[in-house]
Design a protein around this nucleic acid. Structure first.
Lengths: 210, 210
DNA sequence: AAGTAAGTTGACCCAAGGGTCAAGAACTGT
DNA sequence: ACAGTTCTTGACCCTTGGGTCAACTTACTT
């Protein structure tokens, strides 16, 4: 690869990182090219697809923070606290950074590294949930699929509210946590948990807003 | 107005009603015209704006059902049951009919009748919430703004899940109800309620999916 | 039955966003 | 310093959706 191409790729990565964090993974590619100061043709030439660009850029942005949240959640002595920490932390990351929000909720099947991150995050969530359930801290019928759906809707809410009520999502999180916490009244859920396939389908459509 | 124009307007209203219910208030106007069997020019000629069409068509679709839900909720002896009924019923309407979902969550400020419906629904919600709170049935810091935001995210979820997991939203509703129900552990919310203005802004952006 | 007003049509404009590619510019190795 | 390769550019094409309007058609009136 020629030196100037290398430089352009770097400029594009930088611009993409900025814009992804500012406005999510769906920013127009032409705008990324504009900010990088190159033609959009060059972007297509060097990366080919949005997914490839995402893969090179977003991994570093999101993976560490999500992993760290999971790790820290599991380091709590009290599983209930760890669980609450994890949910709040992930939602906060989503609210703070649209790129993270899209990593958690958007679906970009062609972005391999990104999908790997999602996989790891989901596994971590499952462990955190199960730990809390074994301790009897939260209702036993809550699943990691439920949590994912909640994250997706939370991401939409957080982004929509970012300018006007940047903490709106915290209320919804609080209601959820209250609802999950084992308490006296605890009826069984009338609806079966979703399958991973269902969640996959659902998220695809929630992400693209038709 | 000439007789043929009258007929066309009627065809357009019928087509719009169908498509609004099938796919929400954002269906392309040209598609409505296509289904009505007229040119899109005629649609613009007869109605001018999407809002005008919505106003003529959606009122009948949504108002009765929403009013009825509120009325029935207030007819429960137990305010707690009435509250739960209302939330579930509205969410169910949203899940069943994208037009209702958009009425509750979308913002079409130029559609007067529609905004009137929204206003009435919100007032009803406030009464239902306050009644439950006076009875000590639900946490006192839950507001009708919280409920609206919940409805909006619920609508997105329900629509996204419609084909794959049409009951997914019921789980989230159940978690919410559990969280609102007065129980032993009941910490104060760390975040202040939103103002109506904030809710107004937020919803505008949640509706248009950028 | 003809004249006129009213209504309809579809080609046309716009913008945003995705994507391609021939022509030209710019590196690099010798 | 020049040939040869690689890279960049921006004009171009596509689509979807909103919106307009001159020319045509249709219905009503007398």
């Amino acid at each position: 690869m020629r030196a100037d191409a290398q430089r352009n790729a770097e400029k594009l990565r930088a611009a993409a990182a900025e814009l992804f964090q500012e406005r999510g993974l769906k920013v127009p590619l032409k705008e990324i090219a504009r900010r990088a100061g190159v033609s959009h043709g060059t972007l297509y030439n060097l990366f080919g697809t949005r997914e490839a660009l995402i893969d090179e850029v977003v991994t570093g942005l999101a993976a560490d923070r999500l992993d760290e949240a999971a790790e820290h959640a599991l380091s709590f002595e009290d599983p209930r606290e760890g669980f609450a920490y994890y949910i709040e932390k992930v939602c906060e990351l989503q609210a703070t950074d649209p790129a993270v929000a899209d990593v958690v909720s958007g679906r970009y099947p062609a972005a391999e590294c990104l999908m790997a991150i999602c996989g790891r995050a989901q596994e971590a969530a499952t462990r955190i949930i199960e730990r809390a359930q074994l301790a009897g801290a939260i209702r036993p019928d809550f699943t990691s699929e439920d949590l994912l759906l909640f994250f997706v809707t939370n991401a939409l809410l957080a982004r929509a509210a970012a300018d006007t009520a940047p903490d709106a999502w915290r209320r919804q999180v609080a209601f959820l946590l209250e609802g999950l916490d084992t308490g006296p009244a605890q009826g069984a859920l009338a609806v079966a948990p979703l399958t991973p396939q269902q969640v996959y389908d659902v998220m695809g459509r929630l992400a693209g807003t038709p």
